[in-house]
Design a protein around this nucleic acid. Structure first.
Lengths: 195, 195
DNA sequence: TTTATTTTTGAATGAAAATTCAATATAAAG
DNA sequence: CTTTATATTGAATTTTCATTCAAAAATAAA
């Protein structure tokens, strides 16, 4: 018999994240990923069905984590809507905080990942729905202006956040997460708080 | 002698926009573009160096247009900063209004286009700089709050706008440009106007 | 040690597409 | 109508990689 040395499956996925982040999914070669993971080309196919499977596994891991965390936050009843919104922004940033490469793959390959897998589009919608729910609650409680076009607004904040994460991932020193966190919350709140 | 019938060069570029928008740059085949333009595969190479050249030509055309238009707006002295900001949003949306496919290519292939061509990154920076300049003027005139982290803010609004354009291009009936225009201006202004 | 089992390897294969180019078609000029 | 110059074609060529798989290596059990 023979047992597996180390954790090649994980090594390969991490390598894929690095290589996808650096060159983009389509410009990444399987042999580059293998090299980055210090395994042979063929080993990639022992653990993953094909190149696309690698991308899907990355997204599956990310979205399920994002969704679970967001659900937790949205269910904390002690928080006001605005506090929830802050917490949501924080969790979103926290998921990526340790790993700029992962953030880059997430923002850059979303479309490619969703092309054959509708499940990611559904995650995305469910994610936004959850955020929207907290906002709607806030409207009922009078914390948030009533005449807010929610359909536009949720795309507005998500797009803004996505772009900031992207900038940070490209140059973490220049755009610190703390600075993004602080300012983002200011920008969105002053736009919607009832005064 | 033989003269050129029609304008194949333009036909091919338009076809490329449609095909890139539909399948994404990397999933698009040259023969699909040729077919869409009603020419032979080889003709594409008469007018364009290669596949990447097609993408670059699309971006060159777009960015130069965006930049020229933005410069015009930024130089209208009769406008207040906030009016200028509105006008900038309008021009950005106007450039794409006639052509959802072009918008899709712009938002989806930005990274691929910039990968070998630093010139597009420069355009992007110059574009944001121009917008920032108007905002800074507004701060001096007291129209815009003084403690605005401009570096974050400009990425914030550009990201938001980019995502809304993207949604619109994917389903123009659902996210009408008018609705985006109206709400976007509301969101950003209530966030920065001095009260 | 030897054998059996599983993991790992990386060169060989095959497919897909980008690109080329010799052949063909067409319009203008003579 | 013929010649000439240019435009257009699309099959053939080439390149690039993803994927496969037979062989080799590593480990555990006998």
């Amino acid at each position: 018999m023979r047992t597996r040395e180390g954790n090649k499956e994980k090594d390969i996925l991490n390598a894929a994240v690095e290589i996808f982040a650096k060159f983009g999914y389509h410009n990444s070669k399987i042999y580059q990923i293998a090299q980055e993971a210090s395994v042979a080309t063929g080993s990639v196919y022992v653990y993953y069905k094909n190149k696309e499977d690698l991308l899907h596994k990355i997204f599956e891991m990310l979205w399920s984590r994002l969704y679970i965390e967001l659900k937790k936050v949205s269910e904390i009843t002690e928080l006001t809507s605005l506090e929830k919104l802050d917490a949501m922004v924080d969790l979103y940033l926290d998921v990526f905080a340790e790993n700029p490469a992962l953030a880059l793959v997430f923002v850059n390959e979303q479309i490619q990942a969703s092309r054959n897998q509708t499940r990611f589009t559904k995650y995305y919608e469910k994610f936004l729905d959850l955020a929207e729910k907290s906002l709607t609650e806030g409207q009922l409680r009078g914390e948030i202006i009533a005449n807010l076009d929610m359909m536009i607004y949720r795309q507005f904040i998500f797009g803004a956040l996505r772009n900031l994460i992207h900038r940070w991932a490209e140059s973490p020193e220049e755009f610190s997460l703390g600075r993004i966190r602080r300012n983002f919350k200011l920008f969105i709140k002053n736009g919607i708080v009832q005064k």
